[in-house]
Amino acid sequence: MTVAQAFEAFMKNYQNMVFSTAMRLVANQAEAEDITQEVFLKAYERFDQLGTSPTAGGWLKTVATNMSLNHLSRYRARWSFFSELGRPGHDEGDEEREIEFADGHDFGEEMARADRHQLVEQALQKLPDAQRVPLVLYHLEGLSYEEIAAKLRVSLGKVKTDIFRAREALRKRLASKLEGETCPT
């Protein structure tokens, strides 16, 4: 097997994981493709070490995460002021259907359905960058609040606030068991 063939097989094993990581952070297919391409070009430069390494997946995920964050930060300084301005009625009039769960059903069973996965994915993509990125880093990349704050170079309080707002925004779009409960009086 030539190096090129071996690398093709390597890439087929990991391309979905890398693409998913980039896509969930940047929420743009074209940008995610470019980032994925750059990740694998970097991997090719180190393929003699990575090809047989058990930590190749972790390396790729880390590089994909860092590249995605670098990509976002190139625009964040320029646009964060505008994106952080208040946006009244952002979700009002949204015709996207919301997930409905039957009362009493296990949340996990409902979420196993592919269309629900798609709805969650869509809801995640629609979050603003400032909310989606820390949410993804916390829940999908397994970083702590402190690590996220260090990576994004923001305060710990902002990370917690943004993650809280992201969860609230997802809750508005996705019906859950909690939605069936009444407000505490």
């Binding site: 391309q15 979905n16 994981m17 890398v18 693409f19 998913s20 896509m23 969930r24 493709e33 994925t36 949340f107 996990g108 979420m111 196993a112 996965h117 969650v120 994915e121 995640l124 949410l135 993804v136 829940h139 999908l140 969860r167 997802l170 809750r171 996705l174 859950s176 068991k177 909690l178």
Partner: peptide, 14 residues
């Protein structure tokens, strides 16, 4: 619940 929902997401197709 959000954690479970997000971790249940499958990999996206490249």
């Amino acid at each position: 619940e959000i954690d479970r929902a997000l971790k249940a997401l499958p990999e996206m197709q490249a």
